[in-house]
Amino acid sequence: MHHGEPGIAVNWASKHMKRALICGVGGQDGAYLAKLLLAKGYEVVGTSRDADTTPFTNLERLGILEHVSTVSMRIDDYHSVQSIVSSTKPDEIYNLAGQSSVGLSFDHPVETMEGIVCGTMNLLESIRAVESSIRIFNAGSGECFGEAGQIPVTESSPFHPHSPYAVAKTAAHNLVKTYREAYGMFACTGILFNHESPLRSKRFVTKKIVCAAADIFAGQNTKLQLGNLDVYRDWGWAEEYVEAMWLMLQQEAADDYIIATGKTVSLEYFVEKAFAYFNLNWKDHTEIDAAHFRLSDAQYISANPEKANKQLMWRSTVGVEEVINRLCKDASEAR
């Protein structure tokens, strides 16, 4: 594995294979995407704010740490971004960096905006300055649609963000579209709905739920504190979603796509099924705490992934029940 400044310890001379730059390689999606691209024969360069001190535990868990070149890059600093894009000269860039928690965005709105909006702008401007043929994927979010009601949203549905995170993702989405139309860049956004895996951190409610259920099953005398369970989301499997990211950059023309399963369930359903996996009744082990309610939250979001199904030939195969089972199995084994 290579750390540090580009051009010193890293040899970028190899031109026989495609090179991908994954911004935010240490996260859930970054790690799975790195694994996918390595399997496809790519040379993978991954960024982190400080590559020398980042443990990259997700890459290690997937057994690919030694195969990914890692470099330090501050996504919110244009000169840092341009320096890395210029020295690595990737064929494809995947923008998965920036704050990824809706709840946390209320606590750190400035950091959220800088990482997502300025970070996306810095990448787009760097491509324009260095090599305009570089293809870029931007990780968007189904949260941008906000309160959409029972009708499944499509790519042409209006955005109505309900959190600083969703506002930032909406702005980044619009930036990508603007650069695509103004400069002819191959820039696209995947409007990603919720997608989970064992690599999720515990600040995500899904991970919190399955870990608590596993702990209680193992004998811990504890209560799980939860917020509003009457919210509805579309939950898929992260490994399938990174394949959609790659497919977007292989198309003849750049476009934006909704990536989702097409099935929406309540958070209460998620909790019930997770506890049922361990033969527990969730109502015996949970408490609703107003402190966990978000200041503003979209209650019902459902998605229509038909465009991705048809044009990318991509389709989610892991439904929410299987997602829950896999997460619970992993939580049980990790104890």
Rank of each mutant, 00 (worst) to 15 (best):
N281C: 10
E155S: 06
S133Y: 00
T170A: 04
H79D: 15
H3Q: 13
I134K: 05
G30T: 01
F275Q: 01
V271D: 09
S141A: 05
L123E: 05
L226N: 04
R61D: 13
E92M: 10
H16W: 12
C144N: 14
I136C: 13
N281S: 10
S141N: 04
E147S: 14
A187C: 04
I22V: 07
H160Y: 11
R200A: 14
V265K: 13
I127T: 05
S105P: 01
E155F: 05
T53D: 08
N221Y: 10
L224D: 02
E322A: 14
Y94M: 04
T112H: 05
S302G: 09
Y183Q: 09
E321G: 02
S87L: 15
C118F: 14
P109I: 01
W314M: 08
W314Y: 10
L192C: 14
G184P: 01
Y179H: 02
F159K: 03
K283S: 07
A31D: 04
A182N: 12
D255C: 08
V320N: 10
D50C: 06
N174F: 12
P152F: 00
E306Y: 08
V265R: 14
G142V: 03
L37Y: 02
G27W: 07
L21A: 02
D284T: 09
C211P: 09
K40A: 07
I301F: 04
L21D: 00
I116G: 00
I151N: 13
I134H: 04
R19T: 10
D215H: 12
V231D: 02
L62C: 05
Y269G: 04
A213T: 06
Y269F: 15
K283E: 10
K263W: 10
E43D: 13
L38W: 06
G4H: 15
S83R: 15
L226K: 01
N95R: 07
D256K: 09
W246C: 04
Q28M: 12
Q251M: 12
S126M: 00
A303P: 11
G119P: 04
Q220L: 14
T264P: 09
T88V: 15
D289W: 00
H2W: 15
M185S: 04
H67K: 15
P90C: 08
R326S: 07
S296M: 12
G27A: 00
P198A: 07
H108N: 13
V68P: 02
I258W: 06
G103N: 07
K307I: 07
K15P: 11
A334D: 12
P305D: 03
G190H: 03
S302Q: 06
A166P: 02
E268P: 08
